[in-house]
Design a protein around this nucleic acid. Structure first.
Lengths: 110, 110
DNA sequence: TCATTATATATTACATCAGCTATATAGCAA
DNA sequence: TTGCTATATAGCTGATGTAATATATAATGA
């Protein structure tokens, strides 16, 4: 049912956002997802569970592996929630555009 | 510096999202913000602090009160982060549009 | 100055989170 | 069946989150 509470909670963790970023490239197994992280397999599986329960990803069973992929609906729900604030931030767009460019240079955008 | 960790964490709480929704209408003092909630004033102040530290709102001092308002930059940062997923969810847009309509009928969109 | 109003901070209790290690399960291959 | 690989679950621990009550601070008005 894609609840904003769990969606935003899932997104609040940098490891989970990095996992999502990896899945933009396409499906990946737990081991493939785990590879770049200095983290135990159970911890990664836990993160995947949080993402899955939030509706942000889904799993498919293929033999002994369970490749994950991004589930677009949850992102649409965020987009939809954000909609009500768009009028406010677009009113300041001229400035914000510059601000964002600066932020992108400084910040870690994952 | 608007960190996604703190932004998403702030948004994960329904009370805080309701506060933001209230602020869409415009500036409000703590007491005004508090009014619809069955919650103590310190708890509301705590939520406001979380929102402020995430960069989602800001405070202004006016006599003895400190009206809050929405800070657009943080929302632009979310929008910007979401951007990388837009291609994925828009690919499924035809279906998603219907899904969202359904979700809006069922869910609490705050 | 004193009282009042608006808001913030301190403290405490309890719940949830995020990591780990150890162990369980499920499919495949020999 | 046995063992190997991929993944999930259980249980523990320390850190963090959220709510409450009690108290502090800061501005205003009498």
């Amino acid at each position: 049912m894609v609840k904003l509470d769990s969606v935003f909670h899932a997104l609040a963790d940098p490891t989970r956002r990095a996992i999502l970023a990896r899945l933009i490239e396409g499906e990946a197994t737990v081991d493939e997802i785990r590879e770049p992280f200095a983290m135990s397999q159970p911890s990664i599986s836990r993160h995947l569970k949080v993402l899955e329960q939030a509706g942000l990803i889904s799993a498919r069973i293929e033999g002994t592996s369970r490749p994950r992929r991004i589930e677009p609906v949850a992102f649409a729900v965020i987009e939809d929630w954000l909609e009500q604030y768009r009028a406010i931030w677009q009113a300041n767009y001229a400035r914000l555009d510059e601000v964002l460019t600066e932020l992108k240079l400084k910040d870690d955008a994952t």
